[in-house]
Structures are given as structure tokens and as C-alpha cells.
Computed example of a mutant assay.
Amino acid sequence: MDNSGLLFQLASKGLLVGLLAGVIVWSSKDRNKFRKLVWVTVFLTFDVIMFGAFTRLTDSGLGCPDWPGCYGHSNPLAAMEHIRAAEALMPDGPVTVMKAWIEMIHRYLAMGIGVLIIAILVLSWRFWLRSGKTAPQFSPWFPLALFFFVCLQGAFGAWTVTMKLQPVIVTIHLLLGMVLLAMLTWVGARQNEHLPVAASARRLRWPAAIALLLLTIQILLGGWVSTNYAALACMDFPLCHGALVPEMDFDNGFTLWRSLGMTADGEYLPYPALTAIHWTHRVFAIVVAGHVGWVAWKAWRTEGLQKTGLALLGALALQIAIGISTISLKWPLALAVAHNGCAALLVLLTVMLNYKAGIAGRSGDPLQARQNDSPIRPHRTTNA
């Protein structure tokens, strides 16, 4: 198949995913279809992050070893001859029928998110112009940034395959997915109305921002654990190999530019390097849990932030429990995927907390003032 035909068929599949999401939006009873579209896109992005974790953890990242298609075709059915041949040569290798389908479904869903972000951009421009450029919740500049960002994420998705799962590329791909979720959540927060927030919440602005920064670093470390397959480098808890500080090789473990499972010199990655990767993620989790937990507790005790603070406390407790269980139960797949999903949930809730703390102390109801100029007259909601 020539490149133009391949790209057309792949684009049609991404458009189909987007249209299915669009049916959910337009069939809903919510009169504010734009707000509904944004939050459906947030939900789909959350799902793709979890499915991306499933793709990575089932070793399906090279299920189709080329990009954007699968052996030059738009779906594994058309590429079945090549897939069967590769599977026959290496039955336990990276290319199997199941892994090819997992990888391509992940790509279709990701393309669907791109379609929805384009729709958000077009509609935001339309509503912004209709409002006389006076409705800040429809300002198109943030959706425009989203569009360029999802293109960047797509580029890293391509490099993930073409560079054969280079750990630093895969880790950045994971982080960019989380950042995309955070950006979409911020856009969604701009569409919601929120309960009045006490002026005292202003004191949480910097702590909440630091919580988001620490969470970002921890996600990077977690991605580095996952992409280097270091999840079981420490099989015991709370110790690691029976020691608080086991034997570790930080130089090789945190050399960024190297092939999967190899050192920068082309040797096999030593086990102490994997231990260093895992141990660092585990120790920094204590710092993150302490600060995020404190911020969530303060939010829980602040008027207008109680629901978000309580949800953040619950998600943090769940994440800690899942993290310990993955070690105790020797990293079952469902728990590993849930660990990634709970990290995404923590990102979403921390972004919401940052947004709400950011609007604390403003006079009146800022979103009610916007709605007076809104071209779609949304209903009052109090979604988290």
C-alpha cells in the first residue's frame, strides 16, 4: 500500500473513534456540548494512558515494528502474513497476532484523541468569535497549544517504535501523555462552575503547585522503572534485598541515552543498575506521598476544596496500596496497569486542586460572569 492510501485509512480509523465519542457528546442531556466534549476527551485520554501501560507491560510496543501502519498496512488483518512469519521465527518475541492488535488499537485510540482535540480547537474559535472575544473560557490559545502538544506526543509515539523502545524516548512519551491529560483537565476546569472557594485557599497555591511538580518527577521515575523493566528489581518490602540501602549502580541505571537492557557501552545492564532505578522511585515516593498527602488534607479542611481534597487523599491511599501490592504479589498485570491509571488520576485531581486554589479569593462567581456572554448557556454544574 502506498503512503497516501495508508495515511488515509489510518486517519479514517482515528476519525471513527472521534465520531463515536462525538455521538456520546451530542446524545447527552447536557446542554453545554462543548464542556461535555472536553470532558469526554479527558476520559478518553485517561483510558489511552491506561491502555498504553497495558501495551507496554504486555511487551506489545513492537507488536507492529513499523510506523504508522503495521507492515505497511492499516490493520493487522491485512498484515497477517508478515505477522505470522515473524511469530514463527520468534514465538515469544515482540511480534505476535495479539501484540499487533494491542499496539494498533492503542494507535487508533491515540488518533481519536487527536481528532477530538481538533474539534475542541475549532469549536473554541467559533464560540470565542461569537462572544466578541469576551468569553475567556473559550479562548482558543490553550486549545491551540493542545493541538501542537498532541502532535509532539504523536512524534514521540513514532520514535518509540522506530527507535526500538529506547527507554528515554518511551519515558518521555509516557510523561507527555500525563501532561496532555493535565492540559485537557485544565481546559475542562475552565468550563465548569465551582463551589465558592474560601480566600484562605490562596495559601495553598504554591504547595499545590509543588505537589504537581513532585508528582511529575515521580511519574518520570516510575516511567523509567517501567521502561527498563525494573519493577521487580526489589522483591521485598519495605527493604530492598534485605537492606535499607542495597548494592546499586546509579551510573549505568541513570544513563539516559542507551538501548533497552544495555549500558551506553553496549554491555548488558547489570542488576545493581535496575536496583538503583527501582530504589530511587520507591524512596522518592515517600517524599511525594508526604507532601501531596499534606496538601490534600489542607484542601479537605478548606471551604470549597473539600471534595477535591478528599478525592486526592483517597487516590493517594489507593496508589500506595497498589504500589505495595505489586511488589508483594510479584507485579500482576492488572495491578501494574492500575498503578499507571492511579498515577493519571492523581495528576487529574492535583490539576483540579491547582485550578481551584488559583481562583480562590476572586470576587463574585467568575464563571457566572462569563456565562452572561456564553453562546451556549451551560447549566450550573459542580463537577470535580
Rank of each mutant, 00 (worst) to 15 (best):
I113S: 02
F250H: 07
G314K: 08
T216H: 06
V337Q: 06
W128P: 00
N383R: 14
T302P: 03
V42F: 08
G314F: 10
L256W: 09
Y229Q: 11
S328E: 14
G52D: 05
T382H: 13
T381E: 15
A317Q: 07
I359W: 02
L116W: 07
H82C: 01
T381C: 03
D92S: 13
L180T: 03
E247N: 08
V295D: 02
A79F: 08
T58P: 00
L204D: 04
K36D: 11
R362F: 08
H173F: 07
W186T: 00
E303K: 11
T255G: 10
H106P: 01
L313C: 14
A230L: 06
C70W: 10
L335H: 06
S28G: 12
Y268D: 15
H278Q: 13
Q137Y: 07
G114N: 08
F138V: 05
P375Q: 11
R202H: 08
K36E: 13
A334K: 05
T308P: 00
G304E: 06
I376K: 05
A369Y: 11
I217G: 05
G52A: 07
L239G: 00
A100C: 12
D47S: 14
I286E: 12
A369M: 13
F127V: 02
G72E: 10
R31F: 08
F43Y: 11
R282N: 04
F127K: 09
H291A: 08
A336Y: 04
Q137E: 15
Y108V: 08
A311Q: 10
R362I: 06
A334N: 11
C70E: 12
V161C: 06
L313D: 02
V48A: 12
A230V: 03
G266E: 12
H281M: 05
L123M: 13
V347Q: 03
N32Y: 14
K164I: 12
R282V: 01
D373N: 14
L348C: 07
L7C: 00
G293C: 10
S328K: 15
T381W: 11
P375W: 11
T350D: 05
L239F: 10
C342S: 15
G52R: 01
I322P: 00
P94I: 13
H281Q: 04
T382I: 05
P272A: 05
R202E: 14
A296E: 07
A321V: 09
V95C: 09
W39A: 01
L318H: 03
T45K: 00
R377S: 15
H278D: 07
Q191W: 09
I327K: 04
K33M: 09
A296S: 09
V351K: 04
I217T: 05
G52E: 07
